[in-house]
Design a protein around this nucleic acid. Structure first.
Lengths: 195, 195
DNA sequence: GTCTATAAGCTGATAGAC
DNA sequence: GTCTATCAGCTTATAGAC
């Protein structure tokens, strides 16, 4: 993890992986396709990384950082507002900017049981998100804004819904997006203490 | 869809695909690995199917049937009981019997944007589940057991959560399973009219 | 219908020049 | 550090015997 790979090179490769992943999907991802999105050559990828999986792991670290930034930049203290803003981001429908990353992460997530190299970075990414959501809910409960729900369970349920909606919405091309938005919004309503 | 492939052959291949998918994941699925779970030879697979993707599509049709049966066999009329039973099944944690299918479907689902052949059978499968859940919620609302929530939105949100929890729980080996159960259970509580 | 054998192409990764 | 060239192994799919 604390690789000797320079941060510049890591970021360049991560973005190439992201682009290739968005276009072709994990199952059809090849080093040639990563290289096609990379300013240098295919062999150049192997100067910094020993294997394809390490390149993907670099993308996951990059995605984790992006996601953490996004959730940290919510600039408000009100738990309800923060939770809704987090949902707004996590439930992004494919097609909207930034959703490509969600699809890619989802795809890698579902392959985690069969790939040890990807498991750790994915665990880090999902755990961080889960903790952020848990903290928001816990604050809300402590401040009396939310009912006294179990913060971790609520966060886990919400994150699962967000993860699922990504894959779900991608497969079904119909407008389930609106229903999903109504769904999570109603769930948050239902957490409120004064409802 | 209405293939000329005999039902016997289809079922045999579907089960081989299921086993191979559970063990290796979609990204590493090869016809050789399918054949390893198949009573006959690798070339034999191609007698019935023209491509690897068609074999996977056969698995999806099979899985759709299994899932429909499972949801249909809930033997009760009470909407709350039916919804809880459906959740119990959909939120199966990996490791429990039957969860392998969920993981496989999830994995294919997230690859759907990049694979046209799989999109249609996946759409069929997810739509059928969504409709079943929607019908249960609608019944509950009409009978006054549930609050007057939007049945489709509620069903979509719940299905997304179920889909997501599968991938989510698989990546995180920690016991998020219990939190997820608490999560969906609390959500159903919150749908009740008399709460 | 099912088998063995194999073709044709792709994939991950390396060697060695610059 | 980055390139071009290349290899060994794997993968999908087919041919042809039985």
């Amino acid at each position: 993890m604390t690789d000797s790979v320079p941060a510049d090179a890591k970021a360049e490769v991560a973005q190439a992986v992201r682009a290739a992943l968005a276009e072709h999907g994990y199952a059809r991802l090849t080093t040639a396709k990563i290289a096609a999105e990379y300013p240098k050559s295919e062999a150049g990828l192997y100067y910094h990384f020993d294997s394809k999986d390490e390149m993907i792991a670099a993308f996951l670290e990059y995605a984790a950082g992006e996601l953490a930034d996004e959730l940290a930049d919510i600039g408000t203290d009100d738990p309800e507002t923060r939770l809704r803003a987090a949902c707004e981001y996590l439930f992004l429908s494919p097609g909207e900017e930034g959703a490509g990353v969600h699809v890619a992460v989802m795809e890698l997530l579902s392959h985690a049981p069969h790939n040890e190299t990807l498991r750790e970075p994915l665990l880090t990414l999902e755990s961080a998100t889960l903790e952020t959501l848990t903290a928001i809910v816990r604050d809300g409960v402590e401040q009396g804004v939310f009912r006294s729900v179990d913060p971790e369970a609520t966060a886990a349920f919400l994150l699962a819904a967000a993860d699922g909606s990504t894959g779900f919405h991608t497969a079904l091309e119909m407008d389930v997006g609106e229903a999903i938005t109504t769904g999570w919004s109603g769930y948050v309503d239902c957490l409120l203490a004064d409802a």
